[in-house]
Amino acid sequence: MTTKSNSISRSWWWKILAIGMLVYTFIMGFLGPVPAMPIINESIRNLYFHVTMWMAMITLMFVNVVYSLKYLSSGKLYHDLVGEESARMAMVFASAGLITGMIWANFTWGAPWVNDPQLNGTAATMLIYAAYFILRNAITDEIKRARIGSVYGIFAFVMMFVFIMIIPKMNDSLHPGKGGNPGFNKYDLDSNMRMVFYPAVIGWTLFGVWMMSLRVRLRKIEEKIHNA
């Protein structure tokens, strides 16, 4: 087991930072000033709790592919463990992002599910990672599972990336700021919202990485008990 990653996952300063930023996000996210815009109205606050989920999810998927590559080059099972747990955490954030998005869409668009590039991309991503876990569960041998899981993980990540890249070429998005809709990106994301949005992204991402590292440590303890 590598000692370097352990020391980072056991140090406490970035966990304090994550909690601080999330507390700030919740207070300022619900109470802070937001621009008054038609249709979106106060639901614009979902920016802090929905968009940030995707950022955390993509970071964790990136961790998954990096550790899959590391596993294939090193053959250390620890790398595969981090890869697997980051994919699991990415699925948690994907579900959270989907739920927050569907609640928001139900009020803003009038329906929880519409034919939108982002929604299709999410559906594909979740199916791909569900398949990843099905594949892993189908293999009993530890080393074989790690190797085959890593190969599929890398292939799946690239295909998912291609899908997310090409799908906006197919049809315009209904999302704010896209396809001519009024939104946060171009002119409306004022400095007040930026002051909450960026800390929220960092906070949720750090939170996700923290939970992932806890799961990794839990798995290591389980393994130790199992072997004893």
Partner: peptide
């Protein structure tokens, strides 16, 4: 993995979306 033909569809279909 286990040479289960159903697994090919489960793993392959999501990758074929793009």
């Amino acid at each position: 993995a286990n040479n289960n033909a159903a697994l090919v569809a489960i793993l392959g279909f999501p990758l074929l979306f793009p």
